[in-house]
Design a protein around this nucleic acid. Structure first.
Lengths: 233, 233
DNA sequence: TTCCCTCTGCGTTTTTTTTACGCATAAATC
DNA sequence: GATTTATGCGTAAAAAAAACGCAGAGGGAA
């Protein structure tokens, strides 16, 4: 068996990814049921070791996280960003394993089971099973970061389908921020900022007035981002 | 020579720290002139390898960064936080070296030369020398983070002396955010929020009306932080 | 001393943004 | 056709932000 020798001790390095999705009502994350020790049978974030050699080795941690994400969801062009490293020396019982945590925003509807789909499952964020390692801590951190991000960027771009109702968008905001907004003021602000534009389509089927569909205005969003506007409630 | 052997390749791991200081006018960071290759003679962020063994080995990356900070500034109870990991496989010519970047806020007046002070120097943030490795990128990232932080927390707590004038506080805000505020509105808001309180002391010496001194109200600050108030302009 | 320059402290007014809430209406159910 | 439910559009009050006026202290210069 090939071995690798250094003059100083080196920690192992993995990446993990908190993959957020939204089903129209609740915020969810994609978890994997571990098939091997440690924490066998526990649910865990998708992740794996940094690939430092071989044909398609990783050039950096983001590369590695994207590879894991692709394997698990089949998606390759999604929003993904590094959270931070989790480095406690005892976080893995085997050896000192540093993990570089990331988070991604995906459309649940676009996710197809990955290479080993059988063990991947969307779980409600507000009702997670016990997680392996320090993954609960990572998830908490990711939620905190997502909330901060939402104050400056409409993350709905990446979590919602192209067309959506105003109520769905508001549900998303409320699910992420954990608070309630006034329906009329929410709509007014979204429209006023120009972030969403109304389509001439409506959704029927529900026992109420048929709501319009909306879509994001990417140009307007880029414009606001440069100006540094806060998209805040 | 002792060696360390693994079944998979492991990257080396360091921590680096962007140490911010404020001299009343400009934002500064503490840099070290490198005495050894690579980048010998270049300026670099204080940092070093994760200590994985020995008597006082690090328990995590933060531990390591604090140790470096203490060595360089003599300070041990300062604000320090992880930024994120920088992981490009080619960022160090020697081998794959991941660095976990941190940033710290210190009072320049409290910093005494560290163990190897001769090579440490405060540099104006807006006029940095060429930096080693990807350290310029790390600094840029740290500034970005500091700006975000300032929107929700009065970082002056950690960067200013206990007593300061309103103008000094405003200078700090302007130095960090890179914009100008109206003097009267700035003061009004700070006082209105209750974050600072006026003392009965004034500063004489300058050819103008003697300004009052102020100090932070820590209790009020904690109160606002829990309520999630944005301290924003 | 007196004039002058600078920056401070304490205002006011205007504009913009946020918050609170009223009400008629369309779609489905009974 | 009546009822229920959530939608679309609107207004008024409250709060926050932005713009700006002005007298005054403290030192320097004539």
């Amino acid at each position: 068996m090939k071995t690798y020798t250094y003059n100083h001790p080196h920690p192992a390095v993995t990446t993990d990814c908190v993959i957020f999705g939204f089903d129209g009502e609740k915020l969810k994350i994609l978890l994997i049921e571990r098939g091997v020790a440690p924490y066998k049978g526990c649910w865990a974030l998708p992740g794996g070791f940094l690939k430092m050699e071989g044909e398609n080795k990783d050039r950096d941690a983001l590369d590695c996280a994207k590879r894991e994400l692709q394997e698990e969801t089949g998606l390759s062009n999604v929003y993904i960003e590094q959270l931070q490293a989790f480095t406690a020396s005892n976080r893995d019982p085997r050896e000192w394993v540093i993990t570089i945590a990331h988070y991604a925003l995906v459309r649940i509807s676009e996710v197809k089971g990955g290479d080993d789909a059988a063990r991947a499952e969307w779980k409600d964020l507000d009702n997670l099973p016990a997680l392996a390692f320090d993954h609960q801590q990572i998830v908490d951190f990711a939620v905190k970061r997502l909330r901060e991000k939402l104050r400056f960027e409409p993350v709905g771009f990446d979590l919602l389908d192209r067309k959506f109702t105003m109520t769905t968008l508001q549900n998303l905001y409320e699910a992420i921020m954990g608070v309630k907004y006034d329906r009329r003021n929410f709509s007014k602000k979204m429209l006023y900022l120009g972030l969403v534009e109304r389509l001439d389509e409506k959704v029927t089927g529900a026992p109420n007035k048929a709501p319009y569909l909306f879509r994001f205005n990417k140009e307007r969003y880029e414009e606001l981002k440069i100006k540094g506007v806060k998209i805040d409630f």
